[in-house]
């Protein structure tokens, strides 16, 4: 029976994100997660690998630390740099043996990007995947409009489905007249 203390719970984050955070919270090596929070996407330096959703797991077995990451796009040229940066960050922290493993499955999705990551993207001038308005599918097309990260207007239009990197599409804002990138939902 429900008593008088029924609380209405409004989910503020997706189940996928919640699961990720729980996993991290129960990790045996919280200090290493903190170290890797300083490692960012080389192309989008405001986004840590955790916030981007690329960092999946950190395991420690004695001296050996294994970091598991997943690529955003098959041909993402930043993956090698990310691996090197992870290696460097952990070695500087005093870890002797570091290996970085790239896992493909399950395939990366923008759903793994954290709320903080989305905010950082916007302040960096890139619209986040959910800033899309007026589209029926998740795919960006010529009818897609995205909220301008500079002025917030939805009076925008697509310039190109493929922006400066595979993960982004290029838009222009008709109000503030600035171009901007949208991080595509995938």
């Amino acid at each position: 029976m429900l008593g008088g203390n029924v609380m209405l719970v409004i989910p503020t984050k997706s189940p996928v994100q919640f699961e990720r955070e729980q996993y991290r919270r129960h990790s045996a090596v919280p200090e290493l997660w903190a170290v890797l929070d300083r490692v960012t996407d080389p192309e989008i330096p405001v986004l840590s690998l955790w916030d981007l959703g690329v960092l999946k797991d950190i395991k420690r077995l004695g001296e050996q630390v294994t970091v598991i990451i997943t690529p955003t796009y098959s041909g993402c040229p930043a993956m090698d740099v990310m691996s090197e940066d992870i290696h460097h960050a952990l070695v500087s922290f005093g870890i002797k043996k570091v290996s970085v493993v790239v896992e493909l499955s399950p395939a990366w999705t923008t759903d793994w990007m954290t709320a903080r990551g989305r905010d950082h993207l916007r302040s960096f001038g890139i619209a986040a995947p959910e800033d899309v308005v007026a589209t029926e599918s998740n795919i960006v097309d010529e009818d897609t409009r995205a909220l301008c990260p500079h002025c917030g207007s939805d009076d925008t239009s697509l310039i190109s489905e493929f922006g400066s990197t595979s993960c982004k599409a290029l838009f222009k804002c008709h109000r503030c007249l600035e171009p901007f990138d949208l991080f595509k939902h995938i």
């Binding site: 690529p71 796009y73 098959s74 041909g75 993402c76 040229p77 493929f162 990197t165 595979s166």
Partner: peptide, 11 residues
């Protein structure tokens, strides 16, 4: 972009 996706698959 698309060329990179294909080369990534090849890898």
């Amino acid at each position: 972009n698309i060329a990179l996706d294909y080369i990534g698959r090849a890898r």
